[in-house]
């Protein structure tokens, strides 16, 4: 196993289908599409031989699920935005990496499994990302789910398990997180031309997070996850997890060149395409008191202690 996993770059991209299906309907959606196109070229130029996706629109319950079907083929339709059209897909997955990733998850105490079934419903965010970032399937991919009950410790360990697998197999990896920034959408139909960030507060927080990304302060964003969740995330799940996983998978530091390629509204939600490239420099002025985690120990059975 090599000491340091070869991570060529990291991308943070939105899950909504608009940049794929309707970039012409709104200038902002079009700019997001162009940013995706730019990232596609940069992945290819980076020499990456694996695209590793963590998708917040693939929820799991039984631990962490990892897509291992070598060639999933289907037509996907989004639950909300079905009127924008269908998404035919045929992807090339790195099954060997998926199995290796699962193995390291288990070594670190996580419950994990691979899935490899014809017709398995690959989520909107992953479909959008792979169709735009890797349209010709030049680079094999792997997708990992977001467990609905998991919290910081599991996400940190899940990221480290990915690093173990990357090192073990010597892959050159583009890490992709599929997630919104603020995720509150409008709850009514809007004319595409009238799309905007749902509220000034969401917009302000998004822009602050983008400043951190531009400064390469990924670990700082990770440490701010709980604040971000409380401020601008609809409570669909227990926490804002993607930054935890991304920071952990990429090495838990602030040493990146950050670039925000686009930031736009997607039916009210904050959609950004961001690139982080590992570098030698680093910034940050924070110290953190949340412990680093190497192995997941499971629930602490506080209720079972019978102290009350």
């Amino acid at each position: 196993m090599s000491d340091s996993p070869d991570i060529r770059l990291g991308l943070y991209v939105p899950p909504h289908p608009h940049p794929l299906l309707a970039p012409e309907q709104n200038d902002g959606w079009g700019r997001l599409r162009k940013a995706f196109d730019t990232c596609k070229e940069r992945i290819e130029e980076s020499g990456a031989d694996l695209i590793l996706i963590y998708s917040t629109t693939w929820p799991s319950i039984i631990g962490h699920q990892i897509q291992a079907h070598p060639n999933p083929v289907f037509t996907h339709v989004d639950d909300d935005f079905h009127f924008l059209g269908s998404m035919d897909y045929e992807f090339k997955m790195d099954s060997e990496f998926a199995e290796c990733f699962r193995g390291f998850c288990e070594e670190r105490g996580l419950h994990a499994r691979t899935v490899s079934y014809d017709g398995f419903p690959i989520d909107t965010g992953s479909v959008v990302a792979l169709k735009l970032l890797n349209p010709e399937n030049k680079i094999p991919a792997c997708i990992v789910s977001s467990n609905v009950y998991s919290n910081r410790a599991e996400q940190i360990v899940l990221g480290k398990s990915a690093r173990d697998a990357i090192s073990k197999l010597g892959r050159k990896v583009a890490v992709v997180v599929v997630a919104s920034l603020s995720n509150r959408m409008f709850t009514e139909h809007i004319d595409p031309s009238e799309d905007r960030i749902h509220s000034a507060k969401d917009d302000e927080w998004n822009r602050k997070i983008l400043e951190f990304f531009e400064d390469g302060r990924l670990e700082d964003i990770s440490q701010l996850s709980r604040d971000i969740h409380g401020q601008i995330r609809v409570s669909k799940v227990v926490a804002y997890k993607p930054a935890w996983w991304m920071a952990s998978a990429m090495g838990q530091h602030n040493n990146y060149d950050g670039e925000v390629l686009a930031y736009e509204a997607l039916h009210g939600a904050g959609g950004a395409v961001i690139q982080l490239t590992p570098s030698t420099g680093g910034v940050g002025d924070k110290e953190f008191d949340e412990d680093d985690v190497e192995f997941y120990q499971g629930d602490r059975s506080v209720l079972g202690k019978g102290a009350i």
């Binding site: 929820p59 319950i61 899935v115 079934y117 017709g119 398995f120 419903p121 989520d123």
Partner: peptide
């Protein structure tokens, strides 16, 4: 007409 594969319990 289709196949439904459970995303949680495939």
């Amino acid at each position: 007409q289709n196949i439904s594969v459970d995303p949680i319990f495939p």
